[in-house]
């Protein structure tokens, strides 16, 4: 799996992770660690560009869940339908979308089809 990270200025600074490759039990911690390092360096708004991801396993969902937990509004109890304003997905492929729906992660993450539109929503 390869991950490119860069920052783009919208209304607020948005850190964009462009991911290429499968997110499975072997690779999920690479994504998790890279996002965590950015958060520790000050990132508060994260956009995950999934255009290059055709497969995500339950471990990948766990990584998204962990990232959601790091970036959701502090002090709020997560409830179904409460989507974090600080972490969003863009360019999600059909098989990945099916996994997110099956596991219910789509209830917690906003998903966009256009990167610029997604950046503008932060």
């Amino acid at each position: 799996m390869e991950i490119e990270v860069y920052q783009q200025q919208g209304r607020v600074p948005v850190t964009i992770f462009t991911i290429r490759g499968d997110i499975d039990a072997q690779t999920y911690d690479q994504l998790q660690n890279q996002v965590q390092a950015s958060i520790q360096a000050g990132a508060r708004n994260v956009l995950l560009d999934m255009a290059g991801v055709n497969y995500i396993s339950s471990y990948g969902v766990r990584a998204l869940s962990q990232i959601y937990d790091w970036l959701r509004d502090t002090g709020e109890t997560p409830i179904a339908g409460h989507k974090s304003p600080h972490v969003k997905l863009v360019n999600v492929s059909a098989p990945v979308s099916k996994v997110l729906e099956t596991t219910g992660m789509d209830l917690y993450l906003d998903i966009y089809s256009d990167r610029e539109n997604a950046i503008a929503t932060f």
Binding site: Y59, S65, V99
Partner: peptide, 23 residues
């Protein structure tokens, strides 16, 4: 895993079983 539970309350193993059964 119960898909209506918040992400932090779900075990990874349970999500694997959920996906396995669904597919």
């Amino acid at each position: 895993a119960k898909k209506d539970r918040p992400p932090e309350e779900r075990a990874a193993g349970g999500m694997g079983v959920l996906l396995m059964r669904a597919m």
